[in-house]
């Protein structure tokens, strides 16, 4: 099911409440030491936070649609936790790889732009996958079309076969993202 024509059930009150709660949590993280030195709650700060979060929930409701069913699913939280470690491994590997190519005297790069079709179907999944591809070794998402084709600038093109390219660049994230967001 494509998310762009996904019709949300009309439960604006609950959606607004979720958005309000998220904004308030964000505010409290920003002003974190909630108790002051003598142990008294900073009621003024929290009151301002409630006002601002209510404002955001009222104004931004049409722009940010929270699919709150997704937020209470423990399976997707578990895979998100696993994915965090996988992603940080690839981010560090990407940094080391690009540093090696930059510092090598002859710069062993073989750049090119390749076309890959993804199996992900929702917009959220595609956006997350594009960001993850950008952060990992030698690949940079340039464009994503509406039917799921990724154009990727690759610093060291190893192969031009479509299946081979997809295996090298895409498949290692798709498996996790499909479990987290779809």
């Amino acid at each position: 099911m494509n998310q762009s024509d996904y019709k949300f059930k009309r439960k604006p009150a609950i959606e607004r409440l979720v958005l309000f709660a998220l904004s308030l949590v964000f505010w409290i993280m920003l002003i974190w030491p909630v108790t002051s030195v003598d142990g008294r709650l900073l009621t003024g700060d929290i009151a301002v936070g409630i006002v601002v979060a209510a404002f955001v929930a009222l104004i931004m409701h049409n722009i940010i649609r929270v699919r709150f069913v997704r937020l209470v699913n423990p399976v997707s939280w578990f895979w998100a936790f696993v994915y965090l470690f996988v992603l940080s491994y690839y981010v560090i590997k990407g940094g080391v790889d690009v540093s090696y190519r930059v510092l090598h005297p002859r710069m062993p790069i073989r750049p090119g732009i390749v076309r890959i079709r993804s199996i992900l179907e929702t917009d959220t999944g595609r956006a997350v996958l594009a960001n993850c591809i950008t952060l990992t070794p030698g690949t940079l998402t340039i464009d994503v079309t509406d039917d799921g084709v990724f154009y990727i600038h690759w610093l060291n093109v190893l192969s031009l076969e479509e299946e081979e390219v997809a295996k090298q660049v895409l498949r290692r994230f798709e498996w996790y993202i499909k479990r987290i967001f779809e």
């Binding site: 990407g94 930059v102 710069m107 750049p111 952060l135």
Partner: peptide, 29 residues
Amino acid sequence: FDLFGCVGLVRLPDVYNRIQASTKCVVLG
């Protein structure tokens, strides 16, 4: 890592390769 990314910014040949160096090395640094 920041230094490597900026060396890449100076050395690499075109815009796309420079963006690669920025988003990998400098962000990691």
